[in-house]
Design a protein around this nucleic acid. Structure first.
Length: 585
DNA sequence: GCCGTTTTCGGCCCGACTGTTTTCAGTCG
């Protein structure tokens, strides 16, 4: 995917244009970069489909940017960027990542001290040279040194699953504080984005000073970055920043909307306000000086002629138009997945026994689970062969008998353990377990675990071949990515979605925090194509069973409804769907 | 440089905090 590469160049051009005081041109490059990053399709494909014209149809890309994309596709270079680089030979990627450094300061440091990269910057700061530059001083120099340290030790954004528990703890902590009536985490956390850059906590209180004092003295705080009357900002020991904003109760809705974002959604929302002769900011929606709406988010959206848009889909990807036409889908409610269909046990690479996993799932209110240990060719996990699956089936039968006899959990509660497997898709697209053994399972799922570096056409063919298998019900983690660790397989996801529809195979939304695979955009493509989804945790330990909500969040971000997700069904209905597919073929 | 139920020219989201400088530019979200 070249989108990210071109986007990076556009971001650099934006910085260079800012240095030249060409602010609007800079913004155009920025928006172009954002447009490319948000694109699910490869620009290379778009270009092949309709040349320059197709590129220009991307919102935010006009003639000039389209030509630069074309130039990059053909030569892997962009002349304009090279011109700038000749004039100002800076490592912008490094310098711009240093917090507090923007285009103007970077340019100033180049002109005054010939600083062109992070190393130069650090040396100059240590020697005390930065404090001697006009308009800069001691404090700026110290700030830069701290920011360099931060840049070196963090880097990646944190996983949603790693941050949400702390965010919830903060909400709880502040809700218990005297004077506080609201404490909500906004930002990318509230939108349940897959990775999180910082924590934005929004508080309504009669004692703002107490809230700010409490905030900057939290045990997790390692440094205070800002401390004002309305806003404080701290650095947390887990390697990210947190923001506290205290707002008055009458503007809570407007503030929550504003700080939830995302940025592009807010920009578009504000344009809608302007078109109606109104002004929207974090204090409310105004006509001239007159306040029109501010107390709740719903009130603000309604006053703009829109239905309330759930935070997860505020991505400037059609949700505003849908809200205007009352055409937003009713997103999958949290907690509506009834059963978890991917669970590993001690039989292979899980850490707990089958029974322990079952008990934990039951305790969380699941109505059914599928045990899906790995199969034979995955030697490193001790994958099960046909005989192993048969032995495991006996253990599952025994467990289900105990449930029926009321000897397992609450006998009034329904619970069932299904026989499944995470079958390995071999290099040629065949499955590594024979048909007779697959026929004995309640649920057959398959996934790619080996030969992950195949060229795109071959990998696509391989997965589609697997989808054609008459006994296959689910494709697990369809793209194989591990967030911040491993890129997805080279695979044409659109073709996979088409094939999943044709052969009636469900696609998994794997809820494990570093997978979230399918990802939100792909969920949306699948939903639009009418492909059914399944949300599973991929639990390898009892505590992983709680991850379901991250999968539900990802499905919501992809506009999925209850009807799109098979494991929201009661067990008998779910099995009926799977059986039908097998009988008809 | 992009874009159009205000416009093919003239707009482009908006406010808080910081630091350095004495009234505001730069950065950030």
């Amino acid at each position: 995917m070249l989108n990210a590469e071109v986007a990076k160049i556009f971001r650099q051009l934006a910085i260079y244009e800012d240095m030249e005081n060409e602010f609007f041109r800079a913004r155009a490059y920025q928006r172009g970069a954002e447009a490319l990053e948000a694109l699910a399709e490869d620009v290379k494909e778009i270009y092949r489909r309709g040349w320059l014209k197709a590129l220009e149809e991307i919102p935010g890309i006009g003639g000039s940017l389209a030509e630069k994309i074309e130039e990059y596709l053909k030569t892997r270079r962009v002349h304009t960027q090279e011109q700038f680089k000749k004039k100002l030979p800076l490592n912008l990627e490094e310098l711009y990542a240093v917090e507090g450094l923007g285009p103007k300061t970077i340019k100033l440091l180049w002109e005054q001290l010939k600083i062109k990269n992070l190393k130069d910057l650090e040396r100059a700061a240590r020697l005390g040279k930065i404090a001697t530059v006009p308009h800069l001083g001691e404090k700026t120099q110290e700030k830069i040194l701290r920011a360099i340290t931060f840049v070196r030790q963090t880097g990646d954004r944190k996983l949603l699953g790693a941050v949400l528990p702390l965010a919830r703890a903060l909400e709880e902590r502040f809700r218990r504080l005297p004077g506080v009536t609201e404490a909500v985490v906004a930002g990318s956390l509230r939108r349940r984005q897959e990775t999180i850059g910082d924590i934005d906590l929004l508080v309504v209180t009669t004692k703002p000073k107490l809230a700010h004092e409490t905030f900057i003295k939290m045990p997790e705080v390692i440094a205070v970055k800002a401390h004002g009357a309305g806003r404080s900002e701290v650095r947390l020991s887990l390697g990210m920043d947190a923001d506290l904003r205290v707002v008055p109760p009458e503007s809570f809705g407007a503030a929550l909307q504003y700080f939830t974002g995302d940025k592009q959604h807010n920009v578009e929302l504000r344009k809608i306000a302007i078109a109606k002769g109104l002004k929207l900011n974090e204090y409310g929606l105004f006509r001239e000086k007159k306040l029109i709406a501010s107390r709740t988010e719903a009130e603000v959206y309604r006053a703009l002629g829109l239905d309330l848009i759930p935070p997860e889909v505020r991505t400037a990807a059609g949700e505003l138009a849908a809200a205007k036409n009352h055409a937003l889908p009713r997103l999958l409610p949290y907690g509506s997945v009834r059963g978890d269909l991917q669970i590993q046990t001690k039989w292979t690479d899980g850490v707990s026994s089958l029974e322990e996993m079952a008990r934990a799932a039951l305790a969380l209110g699941r109505e059914y689970i599928a045990i899906t240990d790995h199969t034979r060719t995955l030697a490193m996990t001790g994958g099960l062969d046909e005989r192993g699956l048969a032995r495991q089936a006996k253990e599952i039968d025994a467990l289900n008998t105990k449930v029926v006899q009321g000897k397992f959990g609450d006998k009034n509660k329904k619970f069932r353990v299904l026989k499944g497997a995470e079958v390995n898709i071999l290099k040629d697209g065949s499955l590594d377990i024979d048909d007779a053994a697959l026929a004995k399972l309640d649920i057959v799922a398959a996934a790619v675990h080996t030969n992950m570096k195949m060229p795109r056409p071959e990998m696509t063919r391989r997965i589609i071949k697997a989808l054609q298998h008459p006994r296959l019900h689910i494709l697990f983690h369809p793209t194989g990515r591990l967030i911040n660790k491993r890129p997805p397989y080279e695979v044409d996801i659109r073709e996979v979605i088409k094939a999943a529809k044709k052969y009636r195979v469900a696609l998994e939304v794997n809820a494990f925090p570093d997978r979230l695979d399918l990802k939100d955009e792909h969920v949306r493509l699948a939903v639009a194509a009418g492909v059914k989804l399944v949300i599973n945790t991929d639990a390898h330990a009892p505590e992983h069973l709680r991850y379901l909500e991250f999968g539900e969040a990802t499905a919501r971000r992809g506009w999925a409804t209850r009807g799109d997700v098979l494991n929201t069904l009661p067990l008998n209905k779910l099995l009926e769907v799977f059986r039908k597919k097998t009988i008809i073929g």
